[in-house]
Write a protein that binds this DNA or RNA. Structure first.
Lengths: 117, 117
DNA sequence: ATGGCTGTATTATGGCACTGATGCACCTCG
DNA sequence: CGAGGTGCATCAGTGCCATAATACAGCCAT
């Protein structure tokens, strides 16, 4: 009934990007470790290798990942913390205000929902 | 750096839909009142009449507006409360879980940000 | 050196969502 | 009845997304 902003409707390469970013922040892909190859992750996720490459692209541009041609892509030192910092800033600046006003309109209080772990 | 989910990248007809829904909930479009015509709202918002019509479409399907062909569209009785209820439910079921885990990953606490009015 | 693994560039294609222009059917009011 | 206001259907254009099939360039262990 409400085609809003579920992650389902997002492009694949962006969902992959978010998923990888989460893995880096959480340490599932530790610093210095090699990321799954584009072909491997593509096979695992049932996606196209180029789509995975497009997701990886963003991290190289931001210098969070180091590419060794013919070898693989490695998580740079300090990538997790740097990534969390920028994501946090972006979230607070671009997403939270809308979410906040939206919840207020719907009569919801973030403080109450916070405890729902 | 982060092509995430800002309202800027959303389709126009969905932004309009949200805006109209907010107006109904807030009482800016009172129950029983006539909505702005597709052409009027289109001109005001600098959009195409069809795009506005597409935004209105959702509300007719949900029975929140009544259409009188050749006359206009009117807000149904109880539309505001019904709209708020379903929007709240949808938000809690589809959006909040992701937001919640995302904030947790970024080290943010909704309870602290709640006071930022 | 060779086979097998990396990432990457190229080109083409299909699908789908979004937007837009035009015209038609309907109603109300003078 | 006719003018001007409604919503709405149809058709077309555009751009992004995802996929595919190759091919190439680099590295490494056997």
């Amino acid at each position: 009934m409400n085609p809003n902003r579920p992650s389902s409707n997002r492009p694949v390469y962006l969902k992959l990007r978010d998923q990888i970013a989460a893995a880096i922040i959480d340490g599932a892909y530790p610093e210095g470790a090699m990321l799954p190859s584009v072909r491997a992750l593509a096979a695992e996720q049932g996606a196209n290798p180029l789509t995975v490459a497009k997701a990886y692209q963003q991290f190289q541009n931001d210098g969070l990942v180091e590419v060794q041609r013919g070898v693989g892509m490695y998580v740079v030192r300090g990538a997790a913390e740097r990534l969390r910092a920028t994501e946090r800033e972006t979230f607070l600046r671009e997403e939270w205000p809308e979410i906040r006003s939206r919840m207020q309109r719907l009569g919801l209080d973030p403080a109450n929902l916070a405890v729902v772990l």
